[in-house]
Amino acid sequence: MTLDGRTRFITVIGIGSGDPDQLTLAAVKAMRETDVFLVLDKGRQKSSLVRLRRDMLDAHVTGPYRVVEAEDPWRDRSQDGSTGYREAVHDWRRRRADVCEQLIRDELAPGERGAFLVWGDPSLYDSTLAVLEDITARGNLAVDYRVVPGISSVSALAARHRIGLNRVGRPVHITPGRRLSDTLAALGNDDGDVVVMLDAQESFQHLSGEGTWIYWGAYIGTPDEILVSGPLSEVADEIRRVRAEARATHGWIMDTYLLRPRPHDDGPANPGQIVI
């Protein structure tokens, strides 16, 4: 991007799932070129997420910069139906765009470079790109932006469990937890592996688990990381227990898991493990 003295420039930087060492060289370079870091604060319970971002800045940015925060709009999470859920998300994103537009207008001068630090990879279940699309479509501000990819929680999960996401000649499917049952029904008994994200309902507990392995992780890449893997029928209760304890301790939880059917001709699975 070339500064033109009129346009406000934004870089959306993927910062991985929590470990400062997961930052790519491209991410560090983009951070060092940034004048103002824009942060949406999710409240006291998730203040550690802001602290992790500041730790990354302290570790990697040597020049002067500012960090400005705004309160992230409340989101209605009570909607169960697919239509109500989509409407709630779109409403939240519109209000988020209102906040971000004002933040960019008030805190970023024309010609300056701003940045959003996005957990994992900005392309996977994150709203920042949609919010910026909304802002640019409104036409109230001259805004240009680029994206620096990051290590997603999906990649980090596979690395921490020492597994590949795919098996020979088979696909990998990624779904939010609320769509897990529909996804499995559409796939049939064994048409690849399924990565599940955003599963507040612990949808895995409703599966029979017969012959299926689960590779689960929470707070991946942070000092609070928890990993559990093994036959679903044997470790589902353990995952529910440690998940509840972790949520009670921290006030929030971010977890991801892979479900892998185990056909007889597929060879041995990695040994189950519990790491807390």
Rank of each mutant, 00 (worst) to 15 (best):
S82C: 01
S152W: 01
A26F: 06
P122K: 10
T222A: 04
S47V: 02
A59C: 06
H90N: 13
P268Q: 09
I274M: 07
P263H: 08
R8A: 09
I226Q: 14
S153W: 01
P122G: 13
E107Y: 03
T128S: 14
D190H: 13
Y215M: 09
M1P: 03
D190Y: 12
S203W: 00
D266E: 12
Q102C: 02
L227T: 07
M56G: 03
V143F: 03
I276Y: 10
G169F: 02
G177F: 00
T183D: 00
H264A: 15
V154I: 15
G192M: 08
I10F: 12
C100G: 02
Q45H: 12
D98M: 08
R44L: 02
I226K: 15
Q273S: 11
L259F: 11
V12P: 05
P122H: 09
V61E: 08
V28M: 14
H206Q: 06
D193M: 13
L132S: 10
I15R: 07
E133D: 15
T222S: 10
Y85N: 00
H161R: 08
A109Q: 15
R138S: 09
W74N: 03
L258F: 15
E133C: 09
S152K: 04
E202R: 05
I253P: 02
T256I: 03
L207T: 04
G217I: 04
A158E: 03
A130V: 08
R77M: 09
D199N: 00
S127E: 03
Q273Y: 02
F37K: 12
W119Y: 10
G14T: 11
L23N: 10
P271F: 02
N270R: 13
P149N: 05
L124V: 01
I214A: 07
V67G: 10
L52Q: 10
A186P: 13
V195A: 02
D98L: 07
V172T: 07
R243P: 01
A59V: 00
A142V: 00
V131K: 09
D41L: 12
S127Q: 06
A246R: 10
A236M: 04
R93Y: 11
S47D: 15
G164F: 04
I163Q: 13
P263R: 06
D21E: 14
I239H: 01
A159Y: 03
R8K: 05
I253W: 03
Y219F: 12
D265T: 13
G150V: 00
P122L: 09
E33H: 14
V36W: 08
P231S: 11
S155F: 02
G114C: 10
D58W: 07
V275C: 07
I174A: 05
T34R: 11
V36E: 08
